[in-house]
C-alpha cells in the first residue's frame, strides 16, 4: 500500500509515543513521562467519546460518568482489599489489575447500558440534557458515599499489581497505558469499518432511511454507547492508578466538557484526532497555567472562536482533505 499522509501521521505518532520516555529521560525531563501518561489516558477516554460524537452522532455530555465509574471500581476494590472487608457483604477487594480493570470496564459498560437505554428514548437536545443529568446524578451519588470518602475522595496507597510489571514504576506504567490506548484505538478503527460500524454510521446520518431498510437504529446506538462507556471505564481505571486517588471530581461534568473539547480540537470522527486533542489540551493546561492562573479566561474565548471558525480539528488540518468532519 502506498504511504498516505494519514498513515505517515499515525506512524509518526506511534513512534513519538514509543520513544518519548527514553528521550525525556535522556534530557532529564522526567515529568514529561507522567504528563504524557496522563495525556494517553485522557486520549483513551476522548477516543471512546469520539465513537459517540463522531460516529454515532450522540452528543453525550455525561461521558465523565463512565470514567468515574471505572475509577471508583478500582478505588473501592482497593479499599476493600486494604482492610479485608467485603463489598455488599460478599465481594472481596482486589489489587490485581487483571481482576480490577476488567471489572471497571464491565461495570462502566453496565452503567452505560442503563443510562444509554433511558437516554436513547429521546434524541437531540433532550439527549444532551439527559446524559448530563444522569452523570450529575452519579456525581452526587459519589459525593454521598461517606464510606468511600464522600466529597474528599478515596486515596489509594499504591497502584494495582500487574503480573511481572511494577505499575508504580513510571516507565512500566507509561508503556502499559501506551499499549492499552493503542489497542483500543486499533479496535475502534476496525469497529467503524465493520458491519456494525457501517450500520451505525448509517443510523446516525439518516434515521428515516435506515429504518426503511429494516434496521432498528436504537439498538446499534445503544451498543455504541455501551462500547464507548467501556472505553471510558478503562480510562477511569488507569486514571485512578495514575493519580492513586479517586474522587467525585472524575464524574463531574466539567470533565465531560473537557473530553468533548479534546475530541473537537483534535478532529471529530477521526479516532486519531482526539489523541492530538488530549495532548494539546494537557500541554496547554500545563504551560498556560505557568504564565497565568487564569488561563481559562483566554482558553474559553479561544474555544469559542475555534468552534465558530474551523470546521475540522487539528487532525483534519494535518491530513488535508482526508479528515472530513463527521468521518
Amino acid at each position: 500500500m502506498h504511504i498516505t499522509r494519514e498513515r505517515l501521521i499515525v506512524y509518526g505518532g506511534v513512534l513519538f509515543f514509543a520513544l518519548l520516555p527514553p528521550v525525556a529521560s535522556f534530557f532529564g525531563e522526567h515529568y514529561l513521562i507522567s504528563l504524557f501518561t496522563r495525556a494517553m489516558i485522557y486520549a483513551l477516554a476522548a477516543v471512546s467519546l469520539d465513537l459517540l460524537l463522531g460516529y454515532g452522532k450522540m452528543i453525550s455530555l455525561g461521558h465523565a460518568a463512565f470514567v468515574g465509574i471505572g475509577a471508583y471500581v478500582v478505588g473501592i476494590m482497593f479499599f476493600h482489599a486494604a482492610d479485608d472487608s467485603l463489598l455488599f457483604g460478599f465481594i472481596g477487594g482486589s489489587e490485581n489489575a487483571l481482576v480490577v480493570w476488567p471489572a471497571a470496564v464491565l461495570v462502566s459498560a453496565m452503567g452505560a447500558l442503563v443510562i444509554g437505554a433511558l437516554s436513547l428514548r429521546t434524541s437531540g437536545m433532550h439527549f444532551i440534557m439527559i446524559t448530563l443529568a444522569f452523570a450529575q446524578m452519579l456525581f452526587y451519588f459519589a459525593v454521598g458515599l461517606e464510606t468511600y470518602g464522600g466529597d474528599d475522595g478515596l486515596p489509594m496507597w499504591n497502584r494495582n499489581r500487574l503480573a511481572g510489571l511494577d505499575l508504580a514504576d513510571k516507565l512500566h506504567f507509561y508503556y502499559v497505558c501506551f499499549f492499552l490506548m493503542s489497542v483500543f484505538i486499533f479496535c475502534c478503527t476496525r469497529l467503524v469499518r465493520s458491519r456494525f460500524g457501517l450500520v451505525l454510521r448509517g443510523a446516525s446520518t439518516n434515521t428515516r432511511r435506515i429504518r426503511a431498510l429494516g434496521v432498528h437504529d436504537v439498538s446499534y446506538k445503544l451498543v455504541c454507547f455501551v462500547i464507548a462507556g467501556a472505553g471510558a471505564g478503562l480510562a477511569g481505571a488507569l486514571l485512578a492508578n495514575q493519580s492513586e486517588f479517586v474522587s467525585p471530581g472524575l464524574l463531574h461534568w466539567g470533565l465531560s466538557g473537557e473530553l468533548m473539547v479534546m475530541v473537537l480540537l483534535g478532529g471529530l470522527g477521526t479516532l486519531f484526532g482526539p489523541v492530538l486533542g488530549a495532548v494539546l489540551f494537557l500541554l496547554l493546561e500545563e504551560f498556560l497555567a505557568i504564565y497565568t492562573e487564569h488561563w481559562m479566561v483566554y482558553f474559553g474565548p479561544v474555544l469559542i472562536i475555534v468552534v465558530l471558525t474551523t470546521k475540522r480539528g487539528i487532525y483534519g488540518l494535518l491530513v488535508g482533505g482526508g479528515g472530513n468532519r463527521g468521518g
Partner: peptide
C-alpha cells in the same frame, strides 16, 4: 450485523 471486526465492504 453485530459484527465488529471484519471490514463491512
Amino acid at each position: 450485523n453485530f459484527r465488529f471486526w471484519h471490514d463491512a465492504l
